[in-house]
Design a protein around this nucleic acid. Structure first.
Lengths: 348, 348
DNA sequence: ACCTTATCGGAAAACGTTTACTGTGTCAAG
DNA sequence: CTTGACACAGTAAACGTTTTCCGATAAGGT
């Protein structure tokens, strides 16, 4: 590897000058020497030794990204959003996946500190423990998470309330008045947030909600199936079912079809998450897409901001989602071209 | 940050001794001092400065992972496999996603070289260009990829031929003799590999293949739909369709259902990839799962091996997949519990 | 002519490690 | 006893940067 020393030698200047030019400091260097150094550096293919630089400056151009569950559908998208912004600014990311159960969670932060990362991003389904946050000794950090239960000024989270009201309002606009709800796992704060948003929106519109119309589910397809069956068995059949996520919605869809009913003609169904399921099911399911990529980008921007200003006071940010209109509730469809129709259209 | 100096001071020894103990070199250090140093280091929470170490040793404990398309379903799984092995050995990964079109691909390698990564993993859909491989100046590297068209000794790739014959044999065992095939995009080497494997397996079993039974598709659902329609229109109807991937299989499934036929009763369908689609469709689709996590692990092991022995000669490795038996071809199902049945079972 | 100021460049210290080299002291073989 | 070998610990150089401090030159104001 070619060092700064060689560049200095060839250019006939001291290493100090080379450093000043190449790390574009604002130290005054004449145009001539600057141009010459740049030329030489380019010719010999000089690339600064990051370790040495890091040792000296205590900055590494490395950002630690700590994940809870890299296998989830969201995480990789968020990470790409983060990287999209950071790479352009010359930062690289150290992505570490630590399952929630593992004891070594604190060690990971320590490890990353050893690599002297400049900042941290936590992408987690649960709120990062205080203990770990304390180990950061004032380095910038941001938390991107879906299912928080404790507010933190450095958080970037989806606006569950807004999103949930989005789908309910959509149904109301389509003329539905009897809307049932399948809730997610009660342990999750987001479950109650979404449920509350549903209730509030219904009440605000002046519609009541029957007891039999609310079923407590568990985020998965089988649970959606069971919950829908219970709802279908209630005294008064609803005309629409809101599911707390797409898995539940898909389960509900299967139950409704198995009951000999038609979707959306007899019962409309909406989901939440914009999973692949909702895109592929038959009929496709209207849902809410979370702007995960954007959330990653915002997290990164936020971090860059903190890195520049050394101002660590950031307000929690709620990010709104977007309604994805598909076939499952009979509305005229959105811009997206759906697999099934597309096939039929092009197959002619 | 607490440095080696402080540890040495507190333990009452020289920094050399501390270094020897903490970087567990095989230099002789008495049990007493060793234990003492370890104790002190633990108490003060010492964690070595990687930049300094890296500067001195020219090793960084960092592995560069270069991705083609992080958004794909495979990439994150492979990455997790890689990390699973590497993290345990104290390595961290620098994951960089560079879309194929971008001009800065070569820069990425240079960038990572600047961070003095110890080795490279390329996770790519296309073969990494020679040019980039040359920039590695003899650092260990491994290529994990799906769709190669040029052999490389450092490659870890799925055994397309074996996998493809797996599904065909499965159908033959179930008594099918008239088996049609929907191929993937002809640009991909894997398309022809899979197609050839199908043809070979059929011929080896003594069964002929009609012209109308082979359709050239394009990896996506609509294409599967069209291809299946063409196959259904052939003079002699096949009793089974092999699709080159799950998207095509799903498209074919929809076409067959739309034609008023039953799956698997009238026509059996198999896919390839074990996508979410095949798990969720109705009926669920028998397919081949690629051991992506394992491939990542193998890649990492391979790398560790190279790092230790400085032996850079590694043979290309073909990794066999696994048949996932589901509903779409009428066989008794495998161990997996399928969403739909599970719902029915637990819904009682 | 002299002083002040701005502009530019260099010398050298420092960052925290690892490691080659240089002792010590102990112990066994001669 | 001497000699060599061995086990252990310390000294100091080196890795490639950045940056503080200082000096030199030139320009401008009196």
């Amino acid at each position: 590897m070619v060092t700064i020393k060689e560049v200095a030698h060839i250019a006939g200047v001291s290493i100090a000058t080379v450093s000043r030019v190449l790390s574009n400091s604002d130290y005054p260097v004449s145009q001539r020497t600057r141009a010459n150094i740049l030329k030489v550096a380019g010719e010999v293919g000089y690339s600064p030794n990051r370790a040495a630089r890091s040792l000296r400056t205590e900055r590494s151009s490395l950002i630690g990204v700590i994940l809870d569950n890299f296998s989830s559908l969201w995480a990789p998208v968020i990470v790409r959003g983060i990287q999209d912004v950071l790479h352009k600014k010359g930062y690289l990311t150290l992505v570490v996946n630590i399952p929630w159960e593992e004891h070594s969670r604190a060690d990971v932060v320590k490890d990353l500190m050893g690599h002297s990362v400049d900042a941290f991003v936590f992408v987690e389904t649960w709120h990062p423990v205080r203990e770990r946050l304390d180990m950061l000794n004032n380095k910038p950090y941001v938390i991107v998470h879906r299912l928080f239960h404790e507010s933190d000024p450095h958080s970037i989270i989806p606006d569950e309330t807004y999103n949930s009201s989005l789908v309910v309002k959509h149904l109301l606009e389509l003329g539905h008045e009897k809307v049932a709800y399948i809730a997610g796992d009660a342990n999750y704060f987001s479950s109650s947030q979404r449920l509350d948003a549903y209730l509030d929106t219904m009440h605000a519109a002046g519609f009541g909600v029957r007891d039999g119309w609310i079923a407590q589910g568990e985020w998965c397809i089988p649970s959606g199936y069971q919950c829908a069956q219970r709802i279908l068995a209630s005294d008064e059949m609803p005309s629409a079912i809101v599911a707390a996520n797409d898995e539940l919605a898909y389960g509900a869809l299967l139950a409704v079809l198995d009951a000999g009913l038609k979707v959306p003609d007899d019962i409309a169904i909406v989901g939440y998450d914009n999973n692949d399921i909702s895109r592929i099911s038959n009929p496709t399911i209207t849902t809410v897409s979370l702007p995960l990529f954007l959330m990653g980008q915002i997290a990164a921007e936020n971090l860059l901001c903190q890195l520049q200003t050394s101002d660590r006071d950031y307000a929690e940010q709620l990010i709104p989602g977007e309604l994805i209109v598909r076939q499952s509730c009979g509305a005229p469809e959105g811009v997206e071209v759906y697999a099934r129709d597309f096939q039929r259209a092009t197959a002619e």
